[in-house]
């Protein structure tokens, strides 16, 4: 395309997104001491952590739907996200971390509200990024959805940075309340600078059915052995691979004698080699 007018800037290919000015805050001693200084990352250290950025900042990844993608819109959106991040520190956190969020509320005494809870879900891309915090207060399970780039949020603090065995902890709604109870006045737990994010391999015990969802079908790692009658597991296995009913070769292979089955597998091996 030929740009002929002065007012139009030729778009540069946006290869590497510069995160150097973004404040990566996790609950480390160093970060508590120097709050607003830039991280003096060496070139190597920067490269190493850049590979992890898609896990740390998942909302910066492009829209999964290709139809909605546009270079200029993404550029402007990310610019706005960085601008917001320069105002408040949106720390690195994962599903399973315990956060404390302070929002401004016009009708509260002190004009702000704080909520502490475990992050059970994280979704959205770009400025629409959201996360849900769950806590049990006075024996009542409460969940609050927050939009990460909402300007009424004053502070997001990570009290305990850790991961869990699952990507979403929605099963905590059907788990015993003790697994979702966290002290609202919890102190932030510090980690060693540069250490990998700890994975909590806690196995949660679920309440007896009825449940919000069919947890036996979700292959949850972070749940203790689910005690259900056989028919549930049979149905779960059936529903787990819905494409298999269209796999005609697989169904056919079960009907032929064992020797011919081996022939098919040998043939496929041969093809792979060639």
């Amino acid at each position: 395309m030929i740009n002929t007018t002065k007012n139009f800037v030729k778009l540069k290919t946006f290869k590497v997104f510069n995160f150097r000015n973004v404040y990566r805050s996790c609950s480390t001693e160093a970060s508590l001491n120097n709050t607003n200084e830039e991280e003096n990352a060496t070139q190597e250290g920067f490269k190493k952590s850049f590979a992890e950025y898609r896990h740390i900042y998942p909302e910066f990844l492009p829209d999964p739907e290709v139809k909605l993608r546009n270079v200029i819109r993404e550029k402007l959106e990310r610019k706005d996200m960085i601008a917001r991040r320069s105002q408040i520190a949106i720390p690195e956190f994962y599903v399973g971390s315990i956060l404390s969020v302070t929002t401004s509320d016009p009708h509260s005494p002190g004009k702000s509200e704080t909520f502490v809870g475990i992050c059970i879900k994280r979704e959205g891309c770009g400025l629409r990024a959201k996360f849900i915090l769950r806590n049990v207060i006075d024996h009542e399970g409460i969940e609050v959805l927050y939009e990460m780039y909402d300007p009424t949020i004053q502070k997001i603090k990570v009290l305990r940075l850790e991961k869990r065995l699952d990507d979403e902890l929605l099963y905590l709604r059907d788990a015993l309340p003790e697994y979702s109870t966290f002290d609202p006045n919890m102190e932030p737990e510090l980690l060693v600078e540069g250490a990998p994010v700890p994975v909590n391999s806690l196995k949660v015990k679920l309440k007896p059915r009825p449940w919000v969802d069919r947890w036996e079908r979700k292959n949850l790692q972070g749940v203790q052995d689910i005690d259900l009658p056989e028919r549930f597991w049979v149905k779960a296995a059936k529903v787990a691979t819905p494409w298999e009913k269209y796999d005609l070769m697989k169904i056919y292979k079960k009907t032929i004698p064992a020797e011919e089955q081996r022939k098919y597998t040998m043939k496929s091996n041969h093809n792979c080699k060639s």
């Binding site: 105002q87 016009p106 780039y149």
Partner: peptide, 10 residues
Amino acid sequence: HSFEGPSILF
């Protein structure tokens, strides 16, 4: 509200 501005406080 501009994203470059401070958080909204009442």
